[in-house]
Structure formats: structure tokens, C-alpha cells
Nucleic acid binder design. Structure first.
Lengths: 120, 120, 120, 120
DNA sequence: GTGGTCTAGACCACA
DNA sequence: GTGGTCTAGACCACA
């Protein structure tokens, strides 16, 4: 057991941006905010944000036009896939957690349903 | 959005211990490992572990006898409740995450089912 | 009979602060003195005070805002309840003490009345 | 405000013995247990107990016969007075505590009555 | 500056 | 040995 293997900030930012894109808050084809803007929004160092945008670019979610800035990819399928992948990741975590507590698939789904029902 | 609100080590230890109890690896009524043993197992300072065990005691999961050691409570219902509460907490997180991605309850359950089925 | 189960400093501080709040010396909604200020007032280590304020926070009597400080809860009912609880605790101790000396309720009340009347 | 001015053990023992005498567990005229017996009963150092018995002797509650041991005074009035004095001391503490919380005599008595009533 | 976390190390009562 | 308390001092995120 190791402690304090915390998710680094640049990955937390990657996820936060992906969520905005997934929800259309940052729309397909739009200009992507500048590193400086993101840095001031999240109150972090611009270098940290650069690291995040590099990852987003590697994953093909944004691309940069030299001298103009970055843009969100105009590929709705890709963005949809990304959103689905994020959802699956959350599912994997959920399953792993319930498993570690010894809950079977059926039990996990029952409890989840209860919690959904208790949420109005 | 705030970053680096890292779960402190003492709470990570609390959770790790609760999981062991929930699964019966540490059984009801058993002697609980000493603060110093846990500290050396997890390579942390005994004071940090002490903080964890005091939380577990506040929550009624263990109790300590001065000069002897700590023990896991002999109350299977309480331990069952604890396990259920941990499960519900994981459900809440899951729901919150899927919600933030814009997935409805039905969609979330479908994706979860797919992932359970191993379609990934 | 056990001796020297001394009330720890951090609990003595909790009580001292509660009394100040109960009496309105620290008023509802006010900024709460900083951990370091209390520590130097009471000549104890800041960590000790921190432990006290965390208890007060758990009990819902103060709340802290990261980077700003702690505040007394703006809930006069809660503060009134706290004051009543403290009073009841003193009553419990009194009753227990008189009981241990073999005084009935009526006898205890008679003596208490005498002492209130200043016949001593 | 000073902390940790804890009642020293020898005074805690004085009070414990007085309570036993007040209740007749140690009867008027009886032989008083030896310093060693008391020390082992309370698990403290015999020197500490000596200090306690000296106080009891000064207060005229026990007396020693050279070579034989100590005895509880055969003076029921004195013992009754002692018991009353202890009761009054508890009353004084109670009044001081309720006063510090800002409760008037009448309020204090009302709350005390409630707590007595809630005690069955 | 503010509260929160963690460590190293000491001392204590109890068994 | 066991848990509990306290200190000194460091570092952190947040404002």
C-alpha cells in the first residue's frame, strides 16, 4: 500500500478540460483558450497548463495553428468517443471499488439503484 | 475548481483499514494491530496512524483499552453498516462523475453494464 | 479508582473557548482568533490548539475557510444548545458527586440552596 | 488561563478516603488500612499515600497510635461535618461553573431539576 | 497570514 | 509494549 500517489495537477486539468469539451461548453471547432487564460482560471502556473495542452494535443482533441492558437478538433465522433471513454473509466473505478469491498455485480447494481432513487 | 486537495494520509489509512474490516481480513473482536506496527507497515509516523485510529474509534469501529491495545468492535451489524456506507459513498461519486459528463441515469447504467460485461 | 487521568490541554482549551462563546465574549459570526494567536495566548504549541479547533469544528461550533481563518457559527440556536449541554454536564457531575457521598436528591438540593444562600 | 493544574494524586487519594469514611465503608473507630495496603489498592507509591494520611491526620479525621497503626476518629459529629463540607465544596464548584456560563441561581436549579428528573 | 498535515522525538499512565 | 499527549519545526494550499 502506497500513500499520497495523488493525481498530478496537470492531469486534473486535462480531465476538467475534457469534461468541458464533452459537455459542449467548449465547442467543436472553437478556438481553445490560451495557456495564460487557463492558467489564471485555474490559478496554476502556465507551465503546468502547457503540459496539459500537450497531452490534449497528443490525444488528438485539440490542435494548434501556428501563430493563431489552439482549436478544438472538428470531429464530433472523436469527441463522443472521448466522452464515452471517460464514462468507462468512471465505471472501471466504480467496479474496482465495489469489488474491493466484496460486492458482486448484482449487489453493486442494487445499491447503485437505491442511491439513484434516493437522489430524487 | 480547486486542485491538489489531496486526501491526507491519515484518511487514506482510515479507508484502507475499513476495507480490511469490511472484508473480514481484520475480524470482529480481534486484536487490532498496534499503532507502531501500522506505522511501520505503511512507513508513516506513528502520530499519523494515531490520528487514523482515533477517527476509527470515534466512528465506533474500534475501541482501545489503555495499556493493552485496540480492538475491532464486536458488532457485526455496525460493521455491515460501515461496509454499506462505503459502498454508497462510491455510488455517490460514480453518479456525480457521470452526471458531470452529462449522462442520465439510464445511460450511466447502460455503460456500467457494458463495462461489467467486459465490452471495452 | 484511577488517578492522573488528567484532562488533556486540548480539551481544556475546547472548554475555555466554549465558555467564551456561550457568554458572548466571542460573538456569533465573528472572526475566530487564529490558531497561532490562541497558541501564544495559552502558551501552548499551535498543533495543540489545532486539535482543539478541529474538535470545535466537528461539533459545528466554528467553521474554517481555507486561507482566511475560522469563524464562529452564525446559529444562535446551536450556541444556545451548546451552552445548555455544558450546563447539563455540570449537573451530571454534581449529581454524581453528591450521590457518591450518599446524599439523596432532596438533601443535595437543600445543601445547594444553603450554599447559594451564603450560609457556609 | 493556566492549563494542567491538575489535582495532585495525594489529594485525589485524600478525597477518595474521605468518601469511604463518609459512607461508612471505613467505620468510625476502625483500624485504618496501612499505607502499604492503600498504596497497593490505588497502585501508587507509598510515599504518596503517606502524604495523604498526614493530611487526614492534620484534619483530625484519623489519628495514629504509636506502634499499632492509624484509626478513624470516633467522633461521628466530626465525620458528619466532614461529609457536609465535602458536599458544600461540590456545591461551590457547581455554582461557580453555572455562574461562569451565565446561569442565574434560578436557572441553575431548574436545569439541575431537569437532569435529576431525566435520571429516573 | 491562515488553517491543515506530517515528522521526529519525548514523556506519560497503564499492564 | 500499548495508546495518548505534546512540542518544535517543516511544508503546503489558499488569499
Amino acid at each position: 500500500m502506497q500513500f499520497n500517489e495523488n493525481t498530478p495537477i496537470y492531469l486534473q486539468i486535462v480531465r476538467a478540460i475534457k469534461e468541458k469539451i464533452a459537455l459542449g461548453e467548449l465547442a467543436s471547432g472553437d478556438k481553445f483558450p490560451s495557456v495564460r487564460d487557463i492558467a489564471s482560471e485555474f490559478r496554476v502556473n502556465p507551465n503546468t497548463v502547457s503540459r496539459s495542452t500537450q497531452i490534449l494535443e497528443q490525444e488528438g482533441i485539440i490542435y494548434s495553428k501556428r501563430g493563431i492558437g489552439s482549436f478544438i478538433v472538428e470531429d464530433d465522433k472523436m469527441i463522443g468517443d472521448m466522452r464515452n471513454q471517460m464514462a468507462k473509466d468512471h465505471c472501471q473505478s466504480f467496479i474496482k471499488n465495489m469489488d474491493r469491498l466484496g460486492f458482486s455485480r448484482q449487489e453493486a447494481l442494487e445499491i447503485l439503484t437505491e442511491v439513484y432513487d434516493g437522489k430524487h
